[in-house]
């Protein structure tokens, strides 16, 4: 049993991971660093960071709002709202991109209006950010809702009877109570946002230096048979994935929480 597990984990997980780094460094450190310093790679890094820096905070604010409303209150339509929050998880990433093309593309519902006002969403960073936001929509909310629900309302009520305002109650009592779940959700949201491919590829147009995120850049390099460069960029993303896993394990050890 143990041997079988080690073989499975080795073949399915460890081997691909090793291959990324070995292929990236196949021709030595020089070409590896060179690939990372290409202007197009640098532009992709910048766009990916910009995307993450907008999409993740947006979904975090949404996640906290949705969790506060659904976990601390009961209202008609609450379970419908909970179902709708999960909806983006069941939708193919390609469809997540497609919906914005239909809305904002040149032939889309708002396309002519956007064009008349000289605004560009599709084949522009705005579309990439929107599609990424859609795909990572539920990640923070899903982590927070069960945790906040399990904590109930006693702590908040106690703070209110002691004279705290609503904002003070949230900042000093609720937020510290959910900090690990929040961090966990943000990390998962972040990982997914940085790595999103399908949705982004539909809305990006893949204009080098302008609308190329890191995963899209990997694809282009790979399709141009620049294997070392493709894997060099891929290794950056893989390192980030490993960092995510390490942080995740750290939070789990710290809070003694079960797996999601």
């Amino acid at each position: 049993m143990v041997t079988l597990t080690l073989v499975l984990v080795g073949l399915l997980l460890l081997l691909p991971l090793l291959l990324v780094f070995i292929t990236a460094l196949r021709s030595g450190l020089g070409p590896y660093l060179q690939a990372l310093q290409l202007p197009d790679t640098q532009a992709a890094v910048r766009l990916s960071l910009l995307t993450v820096l907008i999409a993740v905070p947006l979904n975090t604010v949404f996640g906290v709002s949705a969790a506060w409303a659904t976990a601390k209150f009961d209202f008609p339509g609450r379970s419908l709202l909970l179902t709708l929050i999960d909806l983006p998880l069941a939708i193919s990433p390609v469809i997540s991109g497609l919906v914005y093309v239909l809305l904002f593309g040149r032939q889309g519902w708002l396309g002519p209006w956007l064009e008349a006002n000289d605004l560009k969403i599709i084949f522009a960073p705005a579309g990439i950010i929107l599609a990424t936001t859609f795909v990572t929509f539920a990640y923070v909310a899903r982590e927070l809702i069960p945790v906040m629900q399990a904590q109930g309302r006693d702590d908040e009520e106690a703070a209110l009877t002691l004279g705290a305002s609503g904002w003070q109650t949230f900042m000093r009592v609720t937020l510290p109570n959910i900090r690990w779940a929040l961090l966990y959700g943000v990390i998962m949201c972040n990982a997914r946002a940085l790595g999103e491919f399908g949705a982004v590829s539909v809305v990006s147009g893949k204009i080098r230096g302008l609308t190329n995120t890191l995963p899209l850049h990997v694809e282009i390099l790979y399709n141009e048979y620049q294997t070392v460069a493709a894997f060099a960029v891929a290794s950056l993303l893989a390192l980030f994935a490993l960092l995510t896993l390490a942080l995740k394990a750290l939070i789990e050890a710290r809070t003694g929480r079960a797996h999601t």
């Binding site: 006693d154 702590d155 009520e157 106690a158 703070a159 009877t161 000093r172 009592v173 510290p176």
Partner: peptide, 9 residues
């Protein structure tokens, strides 16, 4: 107000 399950922070 003193809560049944204390509600300590």
């Amino acid at each position: 107000f003193v809560f049944q399950h204390y509600a300590l922070f």
